[in-house]
Design a protein around this nucleic acid. Structure first.
Lengths: 334, 334
DNA sequence: CTGAAAGCGCTAACAA
DNA sequence: TTGTTAGCGCTTTCAG
């Protein structure tokens, strides 16, 4: 199987190394030699064996993107932007789910030159893998998460400020029984959004009632379940802040299930502003993260690390702002 | 950078090839030799260089999954199932968008041993790439698409029968002004669902009115746009069949925008039954494809092709059945 | 500007 | 059961 550079060399009447040079665009190849080699290469449908190349260059020209659950609509959007950026820089993208991490020892997919770098989009703060890989010299970027105690590149938005805006908006509308469905405690976004929301509430002279507080795993199912739970209480909250949009969709579903009107009976705010949040059916008021920019920024950071090993870790924080749509209103007058 | 099998060999006092054998689980390595080697390997955090291995084995242990637009919620679900199946069989998954195909010549990511096989989940019938790759000896599987004139493995559902069920259901409910928003004409699913729907209508003694017919690219935006268009006519259709769920969501959005109640004023049926279709907010009546099974089947087919080159192409068709939810009802009595 | 030669780290005959 | 040897196909000095 397979045409090699040797075949091209023989056919073009040059040495194998000249073929290699020519096809890599080395400037010191004579124009007509180049032309001849290129012709033969095209005619024989040749392209270089990547394993052989990467064995010698110590580059795989591919990067890994680690997500926790691709079915969660939050990730595909990020993944798409990452993909676009990496592809246009000549990198292949390998998909990784972090369930795989459960094993001991380094992930085989990440070790020994399988990829030139990794973007982590998963959320677990307790996860030591990024630090381990980074220490081992592999370029690593954390996207949408932040970890204080390790020195790697991070791209986030201002989760604390964004969540605080949500709190203020709710208080300003007149809500007093306000619910909170947090993200996982091991995630930096979950933690920061919690803090921001509670601080925002307190700044407005309100305190969060513990009976109105639940913790989700960022899934639609958890949003639905805790939404049903919260809204089944009496008195029930008149507003719920959800640590991400998908959970907010779950709460919206619960409200609909219970026959509550949004926003007349219940206000809901999400976080992220994924594309679906803007769909007419949801019209979700949410805190917008500039996801595409964040992804592009993360990709570029990784590429820079790859091309310039030993850079100092950088941290990039984007603004996060409330966008008002149709799921927020003053509380019912009762 | 990097510990090699040589280092392990020296440390363990054996030859390099014994290390290779031991770590690959070759049975003819003495138990204590094996133990010693394994100890050293773990201590030195060794794992084999994949490029070197694949240079010689002619295997990359990775497969590509080609999708057209990962932001479309249809794909992540399939991708997740494919991923699970491939990963548990020891394959890495490389993500590919078919925008990249635009270039001339074989996709560099697919050529020369970069991957051991490809699953195409994109939909374009006019695309010659699968045939070209397959002819070149690369294992290829088509998922959710079918092409008559090329000989590769296909996994689909019975799109014709499924769409016919949708037509019959609508007619049985009493609808007479029925709209159709098709998928792209170059996609096999678009073509088959069209045919099935029209045949189903005819079998029930109805004919599709061309004024109620639009063609989408399977996106939410097209669904919204054509939904607005169709529903802006007078008289307007009382039911719309959409060639996939995402388009149906767009139509639902359009209906809501126009103040129409679903299903009282308008019935909507989708196709696929992606997870979101079952969310309370949508409650979409749709034709269910067993997506997870289809994906697993496709992955297994590809793996079999990889392990057993030169198999005869197979074609696997799953049933597709209507699932009734909240978006269908008899037409308004006016 | 081009060719010869070395060798990346591994697997896989082939011997012993 | 283990070691020796020969490459896989490429990139990269080093000569010329």
């Amino acid at each position: 199987m397979g045409i090699t550079s040797r075949d091209i060399a023989r056919e073009a009447g040059v040495s194998q190394s000249t073929v290699s040079r020519a096809l890599r665009g080395d400037p010191r190849v004579a124009p007509d030699t180049l032309a001849r080699i290129r012709d033969v290469a095209i005619r024989l449908d040749y392209s270089p064996n990547l394993a052989a190349r990467s064995l010698i260059t110590r580059r795989s020209d591919s990067v890994a993107v680690m997500v926790s659950n691709i079915r969660n609509p939050f990730y595909p959007q990020l993944l798409d932007s990452l993909y676009a950026e990496f592809t246009s820089a000549g990198f292949r993208v390998v998909l990784l789910h972090d369930r795989a991490e459960s094993g001991i020892g380094p992930d085989p997919d990440l070790s020994r030159g399988a990829v030139d770098g990794v973007v982590f989009v998963s959320a677990d703060l307790t996860d030591r893998l990024p630090a381990k890989l980074s220490d081992a010299g592999l370029p690593v970027v954390l996207l949408n998460r932040d970890v204080d105690d390790i020195d790697v590149d991070c791209v986030t938005s201002d989760n604390v400020a964004g969540a605080a805006q949500a709190a203020e908006a709710l208080v300003t509308l007149g809500h007093r029984r306000i619910g909170l469905i947090s993200g996982p405690g091991q995630s930096s976004t979950g933690r920061d959004r919690d803090r921001g929301f509670i601080e925002g509430l307190e700044r407005a002279g309100r305190k969060l009632d513990d009976r109105f507080r639940r913790v989700s795993d960022y899934s639609h199912q958890d949003g639905y379940q805790w939404g049903m739970d919260l809204l089944g209480q009496s008195p029930r909250p008149t507003a719920i802040f959800c640590a991400n949009d998908v959970v907010a969709f779950g709460v919206l579903d619960a409200a609909r299930r219970l026959g509550l009107r949004v926003p007349a009976d219940l206000s809901v705010i999400g976080f992220d502003d994924i594309a679906m949040a803007g769909w007419e059916t949801f019209g979700l008021t949410t805190v917008r993260q500039p996801l595409d920019e964040m992804a592009k920024s993360a990709a570029r950071m990784l590429i820079e690390q790859i091309n310039e090993p030993g850079r100092n870790p950088r941290r990039r924080v984007f603004p996060a702002d409330l966008v008002r749509r149709q799921t927020t209103a003053p509380p019912p007058s009762v």
